[in-house]
Design a protein around this nucleic acid. Structure first.
Length: 425
RNA sequence: GGAGAGGUGGCAGAGUGGCCGAUUGCACCGGUCUUGAAAACCGGCGUGGGGUCAAACCUACCGUGGGUUCAAAUCCCACCCUCUCCGCCA
């Protein structure tokens, strides 16, 4: 959520930003509702003051004065409850308008849609094949690594069983990512796979809407998490941190559940777009100065790149354009790994993303920090980034490391955990 | 799942209808004393909203949401959470 005061003071900038992001919102309504709310607050405060005054006199009042004061108090109570219900209605409307306004955007972010992302740089080397590379579905079939049929029988389309060495590969990726993050000073967590709807909303998900990506659990206020971003960010909900302990860097392992409503037929082959996968996520809380959050953002991207470099995979780093940012992000970098079996002749597929959400999530989650020299508190900045998203990383490994004989070489850094150098029949 | 206890400011911990936004202790900040430090003493010290050039000031907040009352931390209801014991269980 964007700061109310900021929206009202920078109306044109906010409107321009929404336009660049392709979001239609009613900034005018926010300003109008804010003014309306303020009037009601002032009126309510005055009535409450009068009521306090009247009821404060009662204990000392004479027998004659008392009934009058009680009568006055009754009247004031009615007026107050009238003003309060108006205020509540206005605030509800205000909040829902305000919630639709996306975060502001880093000035260097390219303007446009999905195709306007800026290519920042490339890493690793594209593999060369002297045979026609297969896609991960075919490779997995030959090596008996994924059971899609069992997945559908048991849970439906979009679910799968990893099997045999694919299981070891997934565990190896998790171990590798966690080891790397521990050495980078992250605090490691395994997190709940469910969270309260209020936490999901704080991070920026709509758990129960028509177009939700979220599985919710009937008769509870719990939903399955779509990413550990939700549980890691939510971990410090309503907390006030000391600015000297920032930045805090968390890493969390969780399962991720997504309904993928409305995306059927779009890159759904294999395990590219699935309803459940395992992911190691980074999350950082920084002080509210964009210098620190920008620096941590670069650090998160650096770590993502180092992970894919260590895996020996070719990738490109893109700076996501305004229209493709999503509400909470101020800036977002995606790492796209080369997937030789994808599409016709290979293509890049998104494997990580790293967002700086500035104070947008912190405001709704109410995560603040305090500095000794400043009165009051400020909202922290939050950032998140993927260390390893297992399903897609497995696609990249299988397709890039496939051999003419159908076997798959295990990336060197994963061998200690996979326990072999080559996955073969 | 059953029984009990409890949730109050950074922490500990009083407060059972009006004098309570809240006693006290610790922590923290400033000062006196001291060569310096500690101790002692004095003073300060919550968060949000409104308001103001800035203050003053007003208002809200004692787990959350409702209710009773002229008046609620305090009484009533629901929910959430924590702890102890019992049962069940990987």
């Amino acid at each position: 959520m964007l700061d109310l005061q900021f929206i009202c003071d920078h109306r044109e900038e906010v409107e321009q930003n929404c336009k660049a992001r392709g979001v239609t919102v009613n900034v005018e309504a926010v300003v109008r509702l804010r003014d309306e709310r303020n009037k009601l607050i002032v009126a309510g405060d005055e009535l409450r003051r009068q009521q306090k005054e009247a009821s404060g006199k009662i204990p000392k009042a004479s027998a004659e004065e008392r009934p009058q004061l009680i009568e006055l108090g009754k009247q004031l109570r009615e007026q107050i409850s009238e003003v309060e219900s108006q205020q509540k209605a206005v605030e509800e409307e205000l909040r829902s308008e305000q919630a639709q306004i996306p975060n502001m955007t880093h000035p260097d972010v390219p303007v446009g849609g999905e195709d306007d992302a800026a290519e920042v740089r490339f890493g690793g080397k594209k593999p060369e094949f002297d045979f026609k590379p297969l896609d991960h579905v075919e490779i997995a079939a030959k090596l008996d690594l994924i059971d899609f049929e069992a997945g559908s029988r048991v849970a439906g389309h979009g679910f799968y069983y990893l099997k045999n060495d694919a299981v070891m590969l997934e565990m190896a990726l998790v171990q590798f990512a966690l080891s790397k993050l521990r050495s980078e000073g992250f605090t490691l967590y395994t997190t709940p796979d469910v969270a309260r709807d209020s936490v999901l909303e704080g991070i920026g998900f709509n758990p129960r809407g028509d177009e939700t990506q979220i599985y919710s659990i009937a008769n509870t206020d719990l939903s399955l998490v779509a990413t550990a971003e939700i549980t890691l960010g939510g971990a410090l909900k309503d907390q006030t941190l000391n600015i000297s302990e920032l930045p805090l860097k968390f890493a969390g392992l969780s399962h991720c559940f997504r309904t993928e409503a409305g995306s059927h037929g779009r890159s759904t082959r294999g395990i590219y777009r699935v309803h459940q996968f395992t992911k190691v996520e980074m999350f950082a809380f920084t002080s509210p100065d964009s210098g620190q959050s920008d620096a941590v953002h670069q650090e998160i991207v650096r770590i993502e790149e180092e992970i894919f470099q260590a895996l020996g995979l070719h990738y490109r780093l893109i700076d996501t354009a305004t229209g493709d940012l999503g509400g909470p992000a101020y800036r977002k970098y995606d790492l796209e790994a080369w997937m030789p079996g994808r599409g016709d002749g290979g293509s890049y597929g998104e494997v990580t993303s790293a967002s700086n959400c500035t104070d947008y999530q912190a405001r709704r989650l109410n995560i603040r920090c305090k500095s000794p020299d400043k009165k009051g508190t400020q909202y922290v900045h939050t950032l998140n980034g993927t260390a390893i998203s297992c399903a897609r990383a497995i696609i990249a490994i299988l397709e890039n490391y496939q051999q003419a004989d159908g076997s798959v070489v295990v990336p060197e850094v994963l061998r200690p955990w996979v326990g072999k150098d080559v996955i073969a029949v």
